[in-house]
Design a protein around this nucleic acid. Structure first.
Lengths: 264, 264
DNA sequence: CTGTCGTTAATGTATAGTCATATAATCATG
DNA sequence: CATGATTATATGACTATACATTAACGACAG
């Protein structure tokens, strides 16, 4: 398998690239070019729509090869920060829409982030075929075998979150045998199907009577509801979960990033 | 600086790579390699922690040069899908946390997406120095000149959203002269400071009396509240906004992506 | 004035090779 | 036998080159 290693060993040590570039401080050259350009754009020095130096200019400016600046510009284009057009040049994008990145943490982590001890309990557990309502929630067609769970999460001794969950047993058969006494269903599933995609719906609503009872709040009092339908990248629906947080207890925090219409 | 140029000018047109690969259907070679590998990972065929073929193997497998697979693997590493370790190889990442990408659309677009006509009105407008409370909201230190706005957004004839906004007039002096009769403050600001970053806080809460009156709902009824503090990438605070949506009218929808701890 | 055909500038993709660096494994030595 | 040196492997970064693709621009013929 080892190909013939030709003795390319060119004795000249300085190599072809300039003089003291070997001693560039910390980051790589293209990393530096990237941050330079990004800085110019983010700070507004280079405005949206404006043309940025073409590869050739940058190559001269940084004294490097075109491949290097090409790598950088390609990366920026992929991030949707610039747009490249042949023959014409590269242009700073105008952010079309903005997006916030919302971390979906495990509830255990959320609670512990508040400095409170966490525990949870399973309140209900049924195995059954998917009803029509289930199929809507799961975005599924067939009457799959389902596991329905109701679960309550605590911060110290106070109910922190109510969880209603449906699991597609066909996609995750192991769930039938798991009793979720040690690990919460959410964390367990995350471990089973690591790469997945989901749709989250976030809204405010008054607590339904049954949920209110479990959370020890008044029926109808404001709650943050997060509904999530998860499917594996192979498109099979995996789980639906509805998390209900008493309004005063919880807050989602998301950081922003300006995005363009880039596919990424 | 140009070293003695060896005559690489290989006349052979087919070049070194295999036979009919020049006629690859639609996408570029590295794009194909990328989707191949991504597919293997997303589908779970290559599990988290598993080592993926090293550059040399991939290079043989696809009959291309190392640079090409390197480009692909570098990209995957940047996306946080694989982790690369010298000498050892590249490994499929275990998604550490998951994140949802929450599009922050202009309220006008939100309303129009519902198929309803949109309009808004400015209810209050004051220019003043930042109070202590303002500074907290804006994450600012100094008593900056501020513009305070209260604004109401309608879907058809129903109040859709209440907006309370603070604008740092030092960062965006033009706001003082703008009367926001034609363009809403949010859309206007987005145009002024295109690349920025922000922190969003999303929670459920009962409507405060003044807000409830403006939204024509009962005080205390569940509302979705989105608070956003925006700053330019140059770190200057720009604006704070609190959007209050009556609970039944609005839902945030975010799509998922599994992320690792990648910096990106 | 208009359509077509070059020319050319810019990006897109890929090759082949160099040098550097991190590290696992192995080998040598006191 | 531990420890230090060496070697082989794999990634990381970059250079230099080549050729393909695309689109703006301009010339020129009709």
């Amino acid at each position: 398998m080892k190909e013939k290693r030709k003795q390319v060993g060119k004795p000249k040590p300085g190599s072809a690239r300039g003089e003291g570039r070997a001693d560039r401080g910390l980051t790589s050259l293209h990393q530096r070019i990237l941050s330079d350009i990004q800085g110019n754009i983010m700070s507004g020095r280079w405005e949206p729509g404006q043309r940025i130096p073409v590869e050739h200019e940058l190559m001269l400016q940084y004294g490097c090869s075109r491949m290097t600046v090409n790598k950088v510009l390609t990366q920026l284009a992929r991030e949707g920060i610039i747009e490249r057009r042949r023959k014409v040049g590269s242009f700073v994008c105008r952010p079309q829409s903005q997006s916030a990145i919302l971390p979906i943490a495990d509830i255990k982590l959320e609670v512990e982030a508040l400095g409170l001890p966490y525990r949870f309990e399973i309140l209900q557990r049924h195995k059954r075929r998917a009803t029509r309502a289930d199929r809507t929630l799961l975005r599924a067609e067939e009457a799959l075998p389902m596991l329905e769970l109701v679960c309550r999460h605590f911060a110290k001794d106070e109910p922190f979150c109510d969880e209603y969950r449906l699991i597609n047993l066909q996609a995750v058969p192991g769930a039938a045998a798991e009793d979720f006494s040690l690990i919460s269903p959410g964390a367990w599933l995350l471990r089973q199907v690591p790469w997945n995609e989901a749709e989250n719906r976030i809204r405010a609503s008054g607590a339904a009577p049954d949920v209110a009872a479990r959370l020890k709040i008044k029926s109808g009092s404001p709650c943050l509801i997060v509904e999530r339908t998860t499917r594996s990248m192979a498109a099979a629906p995996i789980t639906f979960v509805r998390l209900t947080y008493p309004g005063n207890l919880h807050e989602l925090v998301a950081t922003f990033t300006a995005l363009t219409s880039a596919t990424k």
